[in-house]
């Protein structure tokens, strides 16, 4: 079809939907401890000898039901990182900011989070980091403000 033959329109279709996701018993305990006591909990599968962080109610690898809570410290190791230099409305903070995968001491899986109080040019894989909690906590992962270098 030749270009001038087309009379195509583009229509704007805004879409907004409010969701509320149930966190379940395991999620509720994790977020409650984080909010009320600044504690970070993991969940251990004894069969696989893995401590999951964030915790889960079923081991994804062996399908066992999990009930063995493990209190993790607030310190860990940076597994990998990047520096975000562009802006997106979905970002948790303004660019530029550093974002990494942190494996807390005692956990076998890492979790993505922000890095703060850090020189963006001086971050290295393997560096030791520590959680900094927010003053006003609401019961979500951003109750940890960020992880800072030790």
């Amino acid at each position: 079809m030749k270009r001038e033959e087309t009379e195509a329109f583009v229509l704007a279709q805004p879409y907004s939907a409010p969701y509320e996701h149930a966190t379940g018993p395991v999620g509720t305990r994790f977020f409650t401890e984080l909010r009320d006591n600044q504690k970070i909990l993991g969940m251990k599968c004894s069969g696989c000898n893995i401590v999951y962080m964030p915790p889960r109610s079923t081991c994804p690898r062996c399908f066992a039901k999990l009930e063995e809570w493990v209190e993790l410290g607030d310190e860990g190791t940076l597994l990998t990182y990047t520096v975000v230099r562009y802006h997106e409305p979905t970002h948790p903070t303004d660019a530029p900011f550093a974002y990494g995968i942190i494996k807390l001491d005692g956990a076998d899986t890492g979790i993505g989070h922000l890095l703060g109080e850090v020189d963006l040019k001086n971050i290295s894989i393997g560096m030791r980091v520590k959680a900094v909690f927010k003053e006003e906590r609401e019961g979500n992962l951003l109750d940890i403000k960020y992880f800072k270098p030790i």
Binding site: H21, A22, T23, G24, P25, G27, T58
Partner: peptide, 12 residues
């Protein structure tokens, strides 16, 4: 309503 489980736990 199933507030007592998250989606993955309900599937499980």
């Amino acid at each position: 309503k199933r507030p007592d489980v998250n989606q993955i736990e309900m599937i499980n």
